[in-house]
């Protein structure tokens, strides 16, 4: 198997950022959060470079196996966090998101990173758009999930290390809205692609059905924030449930189908 040192270096950068955020949560030193942000920035830069290099080497966006999608998802999540961090200086809020990112990247690393040949039906820019918007959308939903969990924690412990509830709520709503927008673009690209590849733009294949459910769920959440009684706590729980639907759509369906139909 080709050398993976550079991928482990990337993991180490993100892991160091996580340690920095953890230390910041405890001792609240500005330089700690600054260093963590710098480490995250370095990680995002290296991650983007690796992704570009793989894209150029393959001649197409390599997102056709589990290593590649986890690697891309992790990149999208790191970028999403970086955006929120630059915009709002969330500090310790990053701990949770970057931990999730480490899980994704850690899930990718033991797998084979070689780029498989492209299946002819995937050889279209629509597929690339579909995947890019799908994972950038997922990353926003993962961000919303993290913010939802932090909201619930903050509602219990009222820590000075975390942003206050109003900020967490607003950021959660923002992540959901942006995620819904990106995921809508993913669905549009996917629908057009399905129409030219199969002759129908909506498929009753279980993965497509669950993608539609993800979309419907987050469209619902774009409205749920207007229900005064749901703002805050209920909304945080819904963000957590929504990410459950996302994870099931992304990973669960493959496992479920495998367990039911080993020969399929």
């Amino acid at each position: 198997m080709p050398d993976k040192t550079i991928f482990y270096l990337l993991f180490a950068l993100y892991a160091a950022a996580v340690c920095g955020y953890a230390a910041h949560a405890v001792c609240r030193r500005t330089w700690l959060s600054r260093t963590s942000l710098a480490l995250t920035a370095a990680g995002v830069l290296l991650h983007s470079g690796l992704l570009t290099q793989r894209w150029l080497a393959a001649g197409y966006l390599p997102v056709t196996n589990l290593f590649a999608t986890l690697f891309f998802f992790s990149w999208a999540l790191a970028l999403t966090f970086f955006y929120f961090e630059l915009r709002y200086r969330l500090g310790a809020t990053g701990l949770f998101v970057m931990l999730l990112n480490l899980l994704l990247l850690g899930g990718a690393l033991p797998r084979d990173q070689r780029i498989p040949p492209l299946i002819p039906s995937l050889d279209t820019p629509l597929f690339e758009l579909h995947i890019i918007f799908s994972f950038t959308g997922y990353a926003m939903f993962a961000m919303a999930f993290s913010l939802g969990v932090l909201y619930l924690i903050q509602a219990r412990i009222d820590s000075a290390a975390l942003p206050d509830l109003g900020v967490l709520r607003r950021l959660n709503e923002e992540a959901i809205f942006l995620g819904f927008g990106l995921f809508t673009l993913c669905m549009v690209a996917g629908g057009i692609w399905a129409h030219i590849a199969w002759g129908y733009w909506f498929s009753w294949n279980i993965k497509s059905v669950w993608s539609f459910l993800v979309w419907l769920f987050y469209a619902g959440m774009c409205h749920a924030k207007f229900v005064r009684r749901w703002q805050g706590g209920v909304y945080a729980w819904l963000s957590i449930a929504g990410f459950g639907v996302v994870l099931f759509t992304y990973l669960g369906i493959g496992l479920l189908l495998e367990s039911n139909h080993p020969l399929e």
Binding site: W204, I206, V209, L257
Partner: peptide, 11 residues
């Protein structure tokens, strides 16, 4: 409904 239906689809 679709969530439940998808389980039937899978089974």
């Amino acid at each position: 409904l679709i969530m439940g239906g998808s389980l039937a689809m899978n089974a």
